[in-house]
Simulated scan of single mutants.
Amino acid sequence: MQRPLAACVLTAVALTLAACSQGPAKDTSGPTAPTGVTAASGSSQTVHVMWNAATDDRAVTGYEVYQQGRKVKDLPATTLMVDIVDLTPATPYAFTVRARDAAGNRSPHSPTVPATTLAATAQDRTPPTAPRALRVTAEGSHAATLTWQAARDDTKVTAYDVYQADARIHTVPGTATTARLTGLRAGTVYSFTVRARDAAENSSPDSAPADLTTTPAPGAAPLTAPTDLTAKVTKGGEVTLTWTPPRTGSPVTEHQLFLNGAFTTTVIWGAQPPPGEATYTFTVPTTEPTRYSVKLRARLPDGTWGDFSAQRTVVVP
Rank of each mutant, 00 (worst) to 15 (best):
A119L: 11
V97I: 12
E139D: 15
H109I: 12
A122T: 08
R152Q: 15
A130S: 10
R152D: 15
A150V: 04
R152M: 13
A122S: 10
P128W: 03
G140N: 07
L134V: 03
P131Y: 00
R152E: 14
P114A: 09
T112A: 09
L134E: 00
A144T: 05
D101I: 03
S110P: 07
A138V: 09
S141V: 03
H109L: 15
V113T: 10
T145S: 10
P108E: 03
D154S: 15
T121Y: 05
P108W: 04
L118P: 00
H109N: 14
A99V: 00
A133C: 11
L118I: 03
T117Y: 01
A151S: 10
A115T: 07
A103C: 02
D153F: 06
S141H: 01
L134H: 01
S107L: 03
P128H: 04
D124P: 02
A99T: 00
T155W: 09
A151F: 03
R135V: 14
R106F: 12
P128R: 04
Q123I: 05
A150H: 06
A143F: 09
S110V: 06
A102I: 12
D153L: 08
A130L: 09
R98M: 14
R100W: 08
D153Y: 08
N105D: 09
T145V: 12
T147W: 06
R98P: 10
A102V: 08
W148Q: 04
T145H: 09
A130M: 09
A143L: 07
A130D: 07
D124C: 02
W148F: 06
P127E: 04
R125T: 14
S110G: 07
A150F: 02
D101P: 03
A120C: 12
T129C: 04
R132K: 15
T129S: 05
A143G: 11
D124K: 01
G104L: 03
H142S: 15
P111F: 06
R125M: 11
T137Q: 13
V113S: 07
